[in-house]
Amino acid sequence: MKAEIYNPIERKNKKKKTKKIIAQILLYLAVLLVVLVVLGPYFWMVSGSFKSGLEIQAADVTKPELEPKWIPRKITLENYANVNKTVRMFDYFRNSMIISTGTMVLSIIISISAAYALSRFNFKGKNALAVGVASTQMFPGIAFLIPYFILFTFANKYFGIQLKNTYIGMIFTYTTFAIPFSILMLRNFLDTVPREIDEQAQIDGCSRGGALFRVIIPLSMPGIVAVGIYSFIMAWNEVLFASILTGRETKTVAIGILEYITAQQARWGGMMAACILVSIPVLVIFTSMQKQIIEGLISGATKG
């Protein structure tokens, strides 16, 4: 006690300590707030997916006893069991898988070769090409959609090529959406692989193509993975073109999910269960590759 009164330094230290503790508490409270705001809608989604249709529809915000609750009154699995019953969700899931995987593969192949040319060759119009590739990002999808739709109509009418409502048409469309960013991202990546390495490989008797496949591609695997994931997720999530160009046979999850709510019936529980199913591939891919994707995003945004 005495020391506290007579020793100003220790007193000061104590004051500093309590201040520090308060600062720590505030810090954790702020972090908690952020986490709650981020996770709130997900809690609501999960809770909704376990509620019975009756519970959701009977809820009424004006009556305290019928207020919508965070915890389901009675947990049910009916939404998961019936997820494919009224809406053909499994078909849409398969369509999305095929279209997204196709987009991923095609986009990787096309952007590797273009990025390789931009990174390793010197040719006329190289900068114009890079700028042209980047500038496509500027235009809104709706600006292409009308003429593109008519183009699809005429490809069918005059050449008999069915592109609307086909996997090929959608894969081709989405690949083109994915490649501008992919090319620029991979080019950045290839630029970090020293040229001496492929020169050395060529001296050791590799052809240029051999150097590409045996040396450069293995070295730029993280970049290729990031590009593949970006393309897959882009195709999985796209709404605008899917809403016009897909039909019964090719409808993707991003559009199909809207079918749970119709003018006649609102199946929110089913929709929330479907939302969880649709998120799974994206979340799995993302969490397993978090580091590469974030690096790619940051370098894309800061250099591009």
């Binding site: 972090v31 952020v34 986490v35 981020v38 996770l39 809608p41 997900y42 609501w44 989604m45 909704g48 959701i56 529809q57 809820a59 009424d60 915000v61 004006t62 919508p68 997720i233 999985w236 999530n237 709404v239 999850v253 991003a254 559009i255 999910i257 809207l258 709510i261 929110w268 929709m271 929330m272 939302c275 649709v278 998120s279 994206v282 979340l283 993302f286 969490t287 978090q290 974030i294």
Partner: peptide, 30 residues
Amino acid sequence: VRGLILLPYITPDSVAYNVWRFIFQARIGL
């Protein structure tokens, strides 16, 4: 936490906005 805050960004638009549509419902919304 750094990983968690990315969730909204990576969640597909069709999922995120449909959940918000549910949250903003007049009679049954949060």
